[in-house]
Simulated assay, not measured.
Amino acid sequence: MEPSEASLEEIEFLSLSPNRVAVLGLLAEESHTRTELAGETGASQATLGRILSDFADRSWITRAGSEYRATATGCLVAAGFDDLQTILETERKLRTIVEYLPSEEFEFDIRRLSDATITLPTQTRPNAPLQRLLSLLREGERVRAVSHAFNEQTLTVVRERTGADVQTFEGVFSQDAIDALEADPSLRSPFRTLLENERATVRTRQEGVPIAAMVIDETAYLLLRDDHGVLRAAVDTDDDAVRSWAHERFEAYWADATPLEAGDLSSSTPE
């Protein structure tokens, strides 16, 4: 259903005045006097008089003595406008990274990312997204990962943490990621050490892994790259729905992957 001109005018009426939005939101929560509204919003009595009059004309509020409160339709408008603001704030936050988000894999409302921490590379800190991951890994006690890559820095932190008996690690990686580790003499031995640790379990997936995601304790983490493999951003959040999704994606890839043991790695250095 397309919005009518009248409904768009009402959206404009609210959006052009932060005080209108604030007053309606307050009255949707509970009753307030004009003095209380002035204290909460900082609006003058004259401004509040106009706002309350406009709201009364629309039957968005009702008055009982000195107190005002929102009607059922006033509460409906307040809730709807709050949702719209959340959507737009989330869109603005994700605007620069939306093309890199694996949204086709998401099974949660993207608004759940409204409070996420987004880490972008900069000229002075081009590896800022990876550094954000490493800081989380250095504190994490339980790590579950699915990825198409396993870089040296991440391997080093995980190997050290599991080796110190302060972290458990479960990972599902693409076969290409495992082949890259085997092909690098400086990484093959540390990776073998990780696999020999009973606190670490790794599986491989021949079909590949289309996302790079981790659950580190209570935090869900996404590492975002473009089609050329260039690191573009990291997103992490403690949101319950996003964390549940990350666990579900891990378990789905885990069930479809092959266990990898230290003995499965080649022992010779490639020519």
Results as ranks from 00 to 15, higher is better:
164 A>N: 14
164 A>K: 15
166 V>L: 09
166 V>Q: 08
167 Q>C: 15
168 T>P: 03
168 T>Q: 07
168 T>F: 13
169 F>N: 02
169 F>T: 01
170 E>T: 12
170 E>C: 01
172 V>E: 10
175 Q>A: 09
182 E>Y: 11
183 A>E: 12
184 D>M: 08
185 P>E: 09
186 S>K: 07
187 L>Q: 10
187 L>K: 08
188 R>L: 05
191 F>Q: 07
192 R>H: 14
192 R>E: 14
192 R>W: 09
192 R>N: 15
193 T>S: 12
193 T>P: 00
195 L>C: 13
200 A>R: 11
200 A>L: 11
200 A>K: 11
201 T>A: 15
201 T>Q: 14
201 T>I: 05
201 T>C: 05
202 V>A: 04
203 R>K: 11
203 R>D: 04
203 R>M: 03
204 T>G: 06
204 T>M: 03
205 R>K: 07
206 Q>R: 15
207 E>H: 02
207 E>R: 08
207 E>I: 00
208 G>D: 12
208 G>C: 08
208 G>F: 01
209 V>L: 05
210 P>Q: 04
211 I>T: 15
211 I>R: 05
212 A>C: 06
212 A>D: 07
212 A>N: 07
213 A>I: 00
214 M>Q: 05
215 V>C: 05
215 V>M: 06
217 D>S: 08
218 E>P: 00
219 T>W: 01
220 A>H: 03
222 L>M: 13
222 L>K: 04
222 L>D: 04
223 L>G: 06
223 L>Y: 01
224 L>S: 06
226 D>T: 02
227 D>S: 15
227 D>P: 00
228 H>Q: 15
230 V>Y: 05
231 L>P: 03
231 L>H: 04
232 R>Y: 04
233 A>S: 10
234 A>N: 09
236 D>G: 03
237 T>L: 02
237 T>Y: 08
238 D>S: 15
238 D>C: 05
238 D>G: 14
239 D>L: 02
239 D>N: 14
239 D>G: 08
239 D>C: 06
240 D>S: 13
